[in-house]
C-alpha cells in the first residue's frame, strides 16, 4: 500500500494528522461569516482536480486507518451496522455504485471485472480480492451493505421511499456526530430529525424532504454539515458518550489548538436504480484548530461563525461549554479584515 496512506489512530494515542496536502484540500464548510440551517444542496458534480469533490467517493490518505477503526467499532458493537430485511436490494445497489465509481476513479487501487453476474473485485489498499455473484448474498462474507461499507470511508444510511416519505431502514454508522442508528432505524424523515432544534420551524426539513422525494437517478446532490470534536475521534456515538464526554472538560488555551477539531460532514445523496431507495453517505473530515488557522481566511471566518452561532445550535452541537475558549483562541487569528464569499482559501 506504500506511502499513500497514513499509519494513524483515531483513539488511544490519537496519532491522526493531516498532511499539508490534506489541509489544503480540507472541505471548509462556511461560504460566509455566519451560519444558520438551510437546505443548501447543490448537484454532486465533479469538482476541481485534487479537491474532495473530484470523485463521487473521495478516497484520501486516511483511508486504510479509518477502515481499521471501523472494524474495531463493529467488533465492540455489531448493531452499528443494520439492515431491515426489505433493504438488501438497496444494499446491492450501493455496492454496485461504490465499486463502479472507485474502479473508474481510482483504477490503480480498485478493479471491478464483470462477466454477467459473476463479479471480481480487487481492493489493493486493503488487500482484498473477492469473486462473487451479484445479487446472491451467499457469495459474500456478509451482507452487501456491510461488505462494501467496511471498505469505504464515511457513514452510510439507506432510505426506503414510500407514502411520500423517506424511512431510514439500513445503515453503517461508526463515525457519527452523536446519533444512534440502532435507535433511529425504521423512522420517517421527520421522526429521525426530531431532536434537531430550530430547523423544523424554519421549514428546512419539509423543503428538504420535498426535494429528496424527487431525486433522480444519476443526478446526486451534496451538502455540508459540521460540528466540533475534541481529539480526532471518529466514533463520537451516543453509545460511547460516557467515554468521550469527559474530554470536553480538559481543554485549555495551551492544548485547544492541537486537540479541538472542526468536524465537517460531506453529505451526498444518490437515487439507487433497482430499489428506488436513496443512499446517504456521510463522510466526516477532521481538522485541528492549529492546522485550520494556517489558512488566514478560514481562521477569520471560523472565529466569526463560532462567536455568533445561536445558543440552541451550539448546545445541540455540543460545544456551548467550550465556546468562550474557542472564541478566545480563534480571535488571535482574526484581524477583522473582510473575507471573500465562498469557502475556498483566498490567494494570500
Amino acid at each position: 500500500m506504500g506511502l499513500e496512506f497514513n499509519e494513524e489512530t483515531f483513539r488511544g494515542d490519537f496519532s491522526f494528522k493531516n498532511s499539508p496536502k490534506a489541509i489544503k484540500r480540507f472541505p471548509f464548510p462556511f461560504p460566509e461569516d455566519s451560519y444558520m440551517y438551510s437546505v443548501n444542496m447543490e448537484p454532486h458534480v465533479p469538482g476541481p482536480k485534487g479537491s474532495v469533490f473530484e470523485h463521487t467517493f473521495d478516497v484520501d490518505e486516511h483511508y486504510v486507518s479509518e477502515m481499521r477503526d471501523r472494524a474495531m467499532v463493529l467488533a465492540d458493537d455489531p448493531l452499528r451496522c443494520q439492515s431491515l430485511p426489505h433493504m438488501t436490494l438497496a444494499g446491492w445497489d450501493l455496492l454496485e455504485l461504490i465499486m463502479e465509481s472507485k474502479a473508474r476513479d481510482y483504477p490503480h487501487w480498485f478493479e471491478l471485472h464483470k462477466n454477467g453476474n459473476k463479479w471480481h473485485w480487487i481492493n489493493r489498499p486493503l488487500e482484498i480480492e473477492q469473486k462473487f455473484t451479484f445479487l446472491d448474498e451467499t457469495t459474500l462474507p456478509c451482507g452487501p451493505l456491510e461488505y462494501i461499507t467496511r471498505q469505504t470511508q464515511g457513514d452510510f444510511t439507506l432510505q426506503d421511499q414510500r407514502d411520500n416519505n423517506l424511512f431510514i431502514e439500513a445503515g453503517m454508522v461508526t463515525t457519527q456526530a452523536d446519533w444512534s442508528l440502532d435507535f433511529d432505524i425504521g423512522m420517517s424523515f421527520q421522526e429521525w430529525h426530531a431532536p434537531v432544534p430550530m430547523a423544523h420551524e424554519l421549514g428546512v426539513f419539509d423543503r428538504a424532504l420535498k426535494f429528496l422525494l424527487k431525486l433522480q437517478l444519476g443526478a446526486p446532490v451534496r451538502r455540508f454539515n459540521w460540528t466540533m470534536t475534541v481529539d480526532p475521534l471518529l466514533d463520537t456515538s451516543p453509545e460511547n458518550y460516557p467515554k468521550w464526554g469527559p474530554t470536553k472538560t480538559t481543554l485549555t488555551m495551551d492544548n485547544i489548538g492541537r486537540r479541538q477539531h472542526l468536524r465537517v460532514e460531506l453529505q451526498t445523496l444518490h437515487r439507487l436504480p433497482r430499489s428506488n431507495a436513496i443512499a446517504f453517505p456521510i463522510r466526516a473530515y477532521l481538522i485541528s484548530f492549529q492546522d485550520l488557522v494556517t489558512v488566514p481566511k478560514w481562521a477569520r471566518r471560523l472565529h466569526r461563525v463560532i462567536r455568533d452561532v445561536p445558543e440552541p445550535l451550539a448546545t445541540y452541537k455540543g460545544f456551548l461549554r467550550n465556546r468562550p475558549l474557542m472564541v478566545e483562541y480563534l480571535s488571535q487569528f482574526d484581524d477583522g479584515k473582510p473575507t471573500s464569499p465562498g469557502w475556498w482559501p483566498e490567494p494570500e
Binding site: F183, D184, G186, M187, E191, A194, P195, P238
Partner: peptide, 12 residues
C-alpha cells in the same frame, strides 16, 4: 430525551 422510537416502543 424527547426522542421516541416506534420500533423499540421506547424513549431514549
Amino acid at each position: 430525551r424527547d426522542h421516541y422510537s416506534r420500533r423499540l416502543a421506547a424513549y431514549q
